[in-house]
Simulated scan of single mutants.
Amino acid sequence: MKAYIFPGQGSQFIGMGKDIYINSNIAKKLFKYADDILGFNMTKMMLEGSKQIMNNTKYTQLAIFMYSVIKSKILKNFDPDMVAGHSLGEISALTAINVLSFEDGLILVNKRGSIMQDICDSYNGGMLAIFGLQDSIVETICKNDPGIVVPSNYNSPEQIVISGEISALMRVSNIIKQFKGSKILTLPIHGAFHSPIMEHGKNKLKNVINKINFKYSRCPIYQNTNASPVRQSLDIKKNLIEQLTSPVKWKQSVNNMINDGAVNFVDIGPKSILQGLLKKILNFI
């Protein structure tokens, strides 16, 4: 069985999409259509913009969504048996399999990105990637901290990401440094995604999602909040709303996809970040 996986933030770069824009008339039309829907030239930002703009959450999410969905639309024989998306990638996956129309998916990502960017601008949060420690140890350290800090991405058996207040992240990182073999990487994200800090935008996101038409999924989508296959539109919407404050259970999703028969994974992103995580997950099976 073939599984298609769609990335979230972190895989963006200036010039992403240039290859498919130049080589596909369908892609060119879809990029133009996206710009018309948004009311500004997002395509130009992707192809010629600055790193500062591309790393702004609002524009980052739009760029990755546009690239992934448009790439899926021009692929030959795009007929997945199952799909999954990492954070933002979940909306890309839903649009690629027509649970969402291209227009609705783009509108949702645009508003989701704006909601998250507003929270990032208002709260001093961040994210750290932790390597070489068991999930349970990181979970306990976060739980014992008096501030807001939680596991936010279960990326692979070797990597877990935590999100929270900068002060809490500093305290937790000081404890983690005492463990031999552990490694900490500060992510270039000025926000505490998938943490209680994002609760401030949950009702706004809920209002946006409830106004959009979601269709029954033609194949299972393994959603971040529960790592389980979902097809019913009401369940998909509920999980998308919860995703804002819940951890991304990526390694659990991949393991469940493999257990359900996936033998071929196709990464629909501008970089091969998810393929890298996939290899690390497979090494532990």
Results as ranks from 00 to 15, higher is better:
residue 119 I to D: 08
residue 254 V to F: 13
residue 105 G to W: 10
residue 112 R to I: 12
residue 270 P to V: 01
residue 10 G to S: 00
residue 147 G to E: 09
residue 54 M to D: 00
residue 179 F to A: 02
residue 60 T to S: 11
residue 44 K to C: 08
residue 273 I to A: 09
residue 166 I to K: 14
residue 94 L to T: 07
residue 219 C to L: 08
residue 267 D to P: 01
residue 114 S to C: 01
residue 8 G to M: 10
residue 69 V to D: 05
residue 91 I to H: 05
residue 110 N to W: 08
residue 48 E to A: 04
residue 225 T to M: 05
residue 93 A to W: 14
residue 272 S to W: 03
residue 127 M to I: 08
residue 3 A to C: 12
residue 74 I to M: 05
residue 169 L to I: 11
residue 167 S to Y: 14
residue 130 I to L: 12
residue 238 K to H: 14
residue 13 F to N: 12
residue 12 Q to L: 14
residue 215 K to M: 13
residue 137 I to W: 06
residue 37 I to M: 10
residue 285 I to F: 15
residue 157 P to T: 04
residue 90 E to M: 10
residue 222 Y to D: 07
residue 60 T to E: 00
residue 120 C to Y: 11
residue 40 F to K: 04
residue 243 Q to N: 15
residue 79 D to R: 13
residue 215 K to V: 00
residue 192 A to T: 08
residue 237 K to N: 00
residue 22 I to M: 11
residue 44 K to F: 09
residue 267 D to M: 10
residue 40 F to H: 07
residue 45 M to L: 14
residue 35 D to F: 07
residue 43 T to P: 09
residue 32 K to R: 11
residue 138 V to S: 07
residue 216 Y to P: 00
residue 136 S to L: 04
residue 142 C to T: 05
residue 180 K to G: 00
residue 125 G to H: 11
residue 11 S to A: 14
residue 141 I to P: 06
residue 279 K to T: 04
residue 40 F to C: 02
residue 117 Q to K: 12
residue 110 N to R: 15
residue 268 I to Y: 11
residue 60 T to P: 12
residue 239 N to L: 15
residue 92 S to T: 01
residue 104 D to Q: 06
residue 247 P to K: 10
residue 77 N to C: 01
residue 1 M to G: 12
residue 190 H to I: 07
residue 110 N to G: 00
residue 48 E to C: 06
residue 92 S to P: 15
residue 281 I to K: 10
residue 218 R to Y: 07
residue 133 L to M: 15
residue 107 I to E: 05
residue 251 K to M: 13
residue 68 S to P: 06
residue 185 L to K: 14
residue 162 I to C: 03
residue 31 F to C: 03
residue 9 Q to R: 02
residue 257 M to G: 02
residue 193 F to N: 00
residue 147 G to N: 11
residue 228 S to I: 09
residue 84 A to N: 01
residue 230 V to F: 01
residue 30 L to C: 02
residue 277 L to I: 01
residue 236 I to D: 01
residue 48 E to D: 15
residue 284 F to P: 00
residue 106 L to N: 11
residue 189 I to A: 02
residue 221 I to T: 10
residue 124 N to H: 13
residue 112 R to W: 15
residue 73 K to G: 00
residue 82 M to D: 06
residue 185 L to I: 14
residue 150 V to N: 06
residue 113 G to M: 10
residue 178 Q to N: 12
residue 190 H to M: 04
residue 101 S to R: 07
residue 87 S to R: 11
residue 238 K to A: 05
residue 17 G to F: 04
residue 64 I to K: 04
residue 26 I to V: 13
residue 282 L to M: 08
residue 212 I to P: 03
residue 191 G to I: 08
